Simulated assay, not measured.
Amino acid sequence: MVLKAKSCSPDIFFRSFTLFFALLLTWVWLSQAAPVRAAVPEPKETVAAAVDKIIGILTDPELATPQNREKRYRLVVATVEEFFDFAEISMRTLGPRWRELDDGERRRFIELFKQFLQKNYIDRVDSYSGEEVVVKDQEIREDRRGNRFAMVNTDFVMKSQTVPVNYRLLYRGGNWLVYDVDIEGVSLVRNFRSQFEPYSFAELIRRMEKSIATGKDLEEQ
């Protein structure tokens, strides 16, 4: 399956993780879930549907006008919130520290992490113009507890090169939801865990709040 997207910035790491948040990936918030369907789509159909929907927003000429930029941003965020299990990402990103947090601290981290990613990635949706996303094969497995997981392999095809982007999904609440992405072998979850590990939870929260307010990296706070 080949879907038309727009081109990315020159840096591959930025392109790939921005692609994750601005084109292919979708959030499902703790209290939200995608609408129940009569037939559950295959994992690769879920990824393809997210791609198709977001690309439709980014390539809509009416939404590309300066006066509609905020509307386009809100539509992208709403779509992102439809398909992705962000609570699962947050738990995996914090690793063992997640078990030490109470419910209020977990909710606080999830909300801040969402804002942090929006500020650093989704805010840059205007940088896209003319590439291809190729949704390829999928692999589904089940663990001993009966939990179902999937990997969907895709290629982000640019004029000069092709970047492999592999999505990890879990089956929850009648839907396939993305919980991690590997871009050229780099896991989103592992990448952020390595960024967050040097800080205590209180310091991490402080730095995330400052980063959201200033747009600067965590280490600059």
Rank of each mutant, 00 (worst) to 15 (best):
S90I: 01
R92Q: 06
T93W: 13
L94E: 06
L94S: 06
L94Q: 11
G95Q: 12
P96H: 14
R97Y: 05
D103P: 01
R107F: 00
R107G: 03
F109M: 00
I110G: 01
E111S: 05
F113C: 01
K114M: 02
F116K: 13
L117D: 05
Q118P: 13
N120K: 15
N120S: 14
I122E: 10
R124H: 14
R124A: 06
D126C: 04
V133F: 10
V135K: 05
K136T: 03
D137F: 08
E142V: 09
D143A: 07
R144A: 07
R144P: 04
R145K: 08
N147H: 13
N147F: 06
M151N: 15
N153F: 11
D155F: 03
F156E: 06
V157P: 11
K159G: 11
Q161S: 10
V163N: 02
V165M: 10
L169W: 14
L170R: 15
Y171K: 14
R172P: 07
N175G: 04
L177V: 07
V178D: 04
V178G: 09
D180G: 03
D182C: 06
I183A: 09
E184T: 04
G185L: 00
V186T: 10
S187V: 01
S187G: 08
L188I: 02
V189K: 14
V189L: 11
V189N: 12
R190W: 01
F192Y: 15
R193Y: 03
R193H: 14
S194R: 15
F196T: 08
E197L: 11
P198I: 02
L204S: 15
L204R: 15
L204E: 07
R207T: 05
E209H: 02
I212V: 15
I212L: 12
A213N: 12
